[in-house]
C-alpha cells in the first residue's frame, strides 16, 4: 500500500524549470498556499501557471517564477484586482493567455480526457479568439458547418490543489459548498500534489461529510501534504475564513519595493510552513 505523504519541499523537488503548473481553488479561495510559498522560495524559474487566479499567481509573479500566465481573471475577491499580478503585467514581465472562465474549464476537461480541444462558441468575436493566435477555430463536420472555437487542452505537467481532508493514500475531500475545478486540475496533469488541512484515516472521510464531498480519489493524486492552515490567507471554510487583515497587508506590500522586501523577509523567507505558522500566529 503506497503512502503518498510528503512535504512541501518534496513537492518542489518534483518540479522543474519551465513546467506548466495548474493550481486549484478560485480567486482567494482554497488555494494550496503552503505549496505555492515553497515554490516561491525555490530556485525554480520560467514556469507557466494556469489558474482561476488569486494570490497564487500574484505571489509567484512577485517572486519572478512566472514566464507565462494562463488565466480568466486574477482577483483577491474582497480586493478586486490582485496588485502583485498587476505590477507584473504592467511592467511587461509575464506573457499571457487570456481565457474566458468557461473556456478554462473546457481546457482542463480536454486535457483530462486527453483530447486536443473541445468545441465551444465561447470566445467568438472577442479578444480571446481574434487577438490570440494560440486559440484557433474548427468547422463542424456536420451539416450545420458552423465555425466553432477549439478550446485548447490545458496540458499541465503538474496540478496542485488544497482539500479539507485527505488520507495518506491520496483520497481527498472538500467540505465547503464549491469543489471549484479541483478534480479537473488534478486530472489535467499526469501528476497532482494535494495539500490537506488534516490527514485522517480513510474510514474517517465518509463520516466527515456526504460521499459527494469525496471529490478526489487516489487515482488522481501522487502526493499528499499534511498542511494545517495550508490555504492561509485564502478562504478555507468551514475550517477558517479568509484572513482579510493579512490579505490587506499582502496587497499593500505591492505598493513599493521596500514594502515588498519587508513582507517577503517576514512571511516568505522565514522558512517552511511550520515557521510561517509561527510567524503569522496560526
Amino acid at each position: 500500500m503506497t503512502d503518498k505523504r510528503m512535504t512541501e519541499a518534496d513537492v518542489v523537488g518534483e518540479l522543474r524549470d519551465g513546467m506548466t503548473i495548474g493550481i486549484g481553488g478560485w480567486g482567494s479561495r482554497r488555494k494550496p498556499m503552503s505549496i505555492v510559498r515553497a515554490i516561491a522560495r525555490s530556485d525554480l524559474k520560467d514556469l507557466t501557471v494556469a489558474s482561476y487566479a488569486g494570490p497564487d499567481l500574484g505571489l509567484l509573479c512577485a517572486t519572478g517564477k512566472v514566464k507565462k500566465a494562463i488565466y480568466p481573471f486574477c482577483s483577491l475577491d474582497s480586493i478586486a484586482l490582485e496588485p502583485h499580478f498587476r505590477n507584473a503585467r504592467q511592467s511587461g514581465a509575464v506573457q499571457t493567455l487570456e481565457l474566458d472562465e468557461g473556456m478554462f474549464l473546457l481546457g482542463l476537461q480536454a486535457a483530462a480526457w486527453r483530447v486536443p480541444f473541445l468545441p465551444t462558441r465561447v470566445g467568438l468575436g472577442s479578444f480571446v479568439v481574434e487577438r490570440q493566435p494560440e486559440i484557433r477555430t474548427v468547422v463542424s463536420p456536420y451539416d450545420d458547418g458552423e465555425e466553432l472555437v477549439a478550446a485548447p487542452a490545458l496540458d499541465l505537467d503538474v496540478g496542485i490543489i488544497h482539500m479539507h481532508r485527505g488520507d495518506a493514500r491520496g483520497n481527498g475531500q472538500y467540505l465547503n459548498v464549491d469543489p471549484y475545478m479541483d478534480n479537473l486540475v488534478a486530472m489535467a496533469a499526469p501528476r497532482c500534489f494535494m495539500s490537506v488541512e488534516r490527514v485522517v484515516d480513510t474510514d474517517e472521510l465518509a463520516s466527515s461529510g456526504p460521499v459527494q464531498s469525496m471529490l478526489i480519489s487516489r487515482l488522481m493524486t501522487h502526493g499528499v501534504v499534511d498542511a494545517p492552515k495550508g490555504a492561509h490567507f485564502t478562504e478555507c471554510v468551514p475550517d477558517y475564513g479568509r484572513d482579510e487583515a493579512f490579505q490587506k497587508e499582502y496587497a499593500a506590500s505591492a505598493r513599493d519595493p521596500d514594502l515588498w522586501s519587508a513582507w517577503k523577509a517576514k512571511y516568505l523567507d522565514c522558512g517552511d510552513h511550520a515557521e510561517y505558522r509561527k510567524v503569522v500566529g496560526l
Binding site: A53, Y71, P72, F73, C74, S75, A80, L81, F85, R86, R89, Q90, S91, G92, Q95, T96, E98, L99, D100, E101, G102, M103, T120, R121, V122, G123, L124, G125, S126, F127, V128, V129, R131
Partner: peptide, 20 residues
Amino acid sequence: PSHPKVQLLGMRGAPGNTVQ
C-alpha cells in the same frame, strides 16, 4: 496586450456570457 498600461480583472466570463 503584452505590456498593458492598466491591468484590470481579465476576461472573466464575458466572452461566453455575451455569446450564450
